[in-house]
């Protein structure tokens, strides 16, 4: 019988290895799988390459993972946050690598990775420093730059509902990168606030089909990054 429900967050992240590439869902705190990130901090895997739109805020969640020295490289579009000094300080000290990618190119690289497409051409970034050194081609009298797809060893994402097959729904703009990261990772680990029976999610409304999901943990009331930051909390 197929059953993708895992018992604990610790079990779910136990095989994340040193040097792994980990895609982490979320746009700011919306969709950030904070309990899975904290489990990864407890687990301690190092020298990770992390793909996320941002670099976290305060001293919890993704910012805490970076602060804990577990991330060697960030691939993101917007590494600055008003209330976080963790990434900027490490970056200025030369202690963390940054691959800056336009947000749409980042999304498309992940989508392409999940769809088995090794590279594609886009007009985004042509004529800017972010296209330097990349292959260019002209189609219909417009210049395009070649971008390589992105895949990962693991994805950590947050869903609203999940069934045992791994079918997922999301909540509003917390969906963001989660569906494409689930496609692009070899192993996709989900935290959800609602574990439901197979069939409870209308097949017409499944946002991520279960084939893209490997493990699910239940976190009924996930922590909220902005609330923790308002309280000055840190992790661990």
């Amino acid at each position: 019988m197929i059953n993708k429900f895992s018992t604990t967050a610790a079990d779910a992240v136990a095989d994340i290895f040193d040097g792994a590439t980990v895609m982490i869902g979320g746009f700011g705190e919306a969709g950030s799988p904070i309990e899975l990130i904290h489990a990864l901090i407890d687990h301690g895997a190092k020298n990770l390459t992390v793909v996320n739109n941002n670099t976290g805020s305060g001293h919890v969640g993704l910012a805490a993972l970076i602060e804990n020295g577990q991330v060697g490289k960030m691939i993101c579009s917007f590494p600055r946050t008003a209330n976080s000094t963790v990434f900027p300080d490490l970056y200025r000290a030369g202690k963390i690598e940054l691959e800056l990618v336009p947000q749409g190119t980042l999304a498309e690289r992940i989508r392409a990775g999940g769809a088995g497409i090794p590279a594609f051409f886009t007009a985004t970034s042509v004529g800017t420093p972010l296209a330097d050194g990349k292959e260019h081609r002209n189609f219909d009298e417009r210049d395009y730059v070649m971008e390589l797809s992105l895949t990962a060893d693991f994805a950590l994402i947050k869903a609203k509902e999940a069934d045992r097959y791994g079918n997922l729904t999301y909540n509003k703009t917390a969906r963001n990168f989660a569906p494409i990261m689930a496609m692009a990772a070899k192993t996709t680990i989900v935290q959800t606030s609602h574990c439901v029976e197979a069939g409870d999610i209308d097949p017409e409304t499944v946002a991520t089909p279960g084939i893209f999901v490997d493990r699910i943990i239940h976190v009924e009331n996930p922590l909220q990054e902005s609330r923790l930051n308002a309280q000055g909390r840190t992790y661990p």
Binding site: S77, R80, Q103, T124
Partner: peptide, 12 residues
């Protein structure tokens, strides 16, 4: 700290 977000996609 360089940060581009979606600006390059929007203008393109």
């Amino acid at each position: 700290i360089p940060a581009v977000g979606g600006a390059m996609d929007l203008v393109a």
